[in-house]
């Protein structure tokens, strides 16, 4: 049997592919769900794509998670024609990086313990990622802390938390069924 201990800092061919596919997926889903104009509710936008970097982090480690979020957001802005916003890209990268830190602890993706850990780290990730992005916004635009908290941080992180908390377990259950397929170790 294979050794269960996986290094979360490895970045070989497999990780390059996961990161590239994750980023493309984040961009395409982000772009498509923008286009579909999903009906939101109140202040919480339906931004299901945010779960992609979070999930790729948990499944494949912090580097893959970070690139998925960072590059995915760059590409998504590029597709939408929104330009390049480094600090929001960085925030999105962190949303994949932070859950990636527990990648090594999660072996059985269906286990309740894994789900709970995943959800906790999704919350941390949304807070950390959007926190960094919002603080950077303060530095760039000179807005004060109140503005940034109420205009940027709270709406962005709340929406990401809700989307992530609902969708991450769904992806983890699906991945549990798929993960045993690959013979590459």
């Amino acid at each position: 049997m294979t050794e269960k201990k996986k290094s979360i800092w490895r970045f070989g061919t497999r990780e390059v592919v996961y990161a590239a596919i994750g980023a493309a997926l984040y961009a395409v889903l982000g772009y498509a769900t923008n286009m579909l104009q999903l009906p939101g509710a109140g202040n919480v936008a339906i931004r299901p794509a945010v779960v992609v970097p979070m999930f790729f982090g948990i499944a494949f480690g912090p580097i893959v998670g970070f690139i998925t979020g960072f590059v995915g957001n760059v590409l998504s802005d590029l597709l939408s024609g929104w330009g390049f916003w480094f600090w929001w890209d960085l925030g999105n990268g962190l949303m994949g990086f932070i859950p990636g830190l527990i990648a090594a602890q999660i072996v059985d993706y269906r286990a309740t313990k894994s789900m709970v850990m995943g959800v906790v780290f999704v919350v941390l990730a949304a807070i950390g990622g959007m926190g960094v992005a919002s603080v950077s916004e303060m530095w760039v635009s000179g807005a004060d802390i109140n503005t940034v908290v109420f205009a940027n941080f709270i709406p962005a992180s709340m929406s990401n938390i809700i989307n992530g908390v609902i969708l991450l377990p769904i992806l983890m259950v699906a991945y549990a069924a798929v993960s045993k397929r690959s013979g590459r170790t």
């Binding site: 497999r14 390059v16 997926l25 769900t33 939101g40 509710a41 339906i46 609902i166 699906a174 590459r184």
Partner: peptide, 27 residues
């Protein structure tokens, strides 16, 4: 809001899992 977000699963899951399965061949 919860049901609404969860309703995206039929789109999200197949596309994501297919991409992950395909990545073995790409690697």
């Amino acid at each position: 809001i919860f049901q609404k977000i969860a309703r995206i699963a039929p789109l999200l899951v197949p596309v994501t899992m297919n991409a992950i399965i395909a990545s073995e061949d790409v690697a």
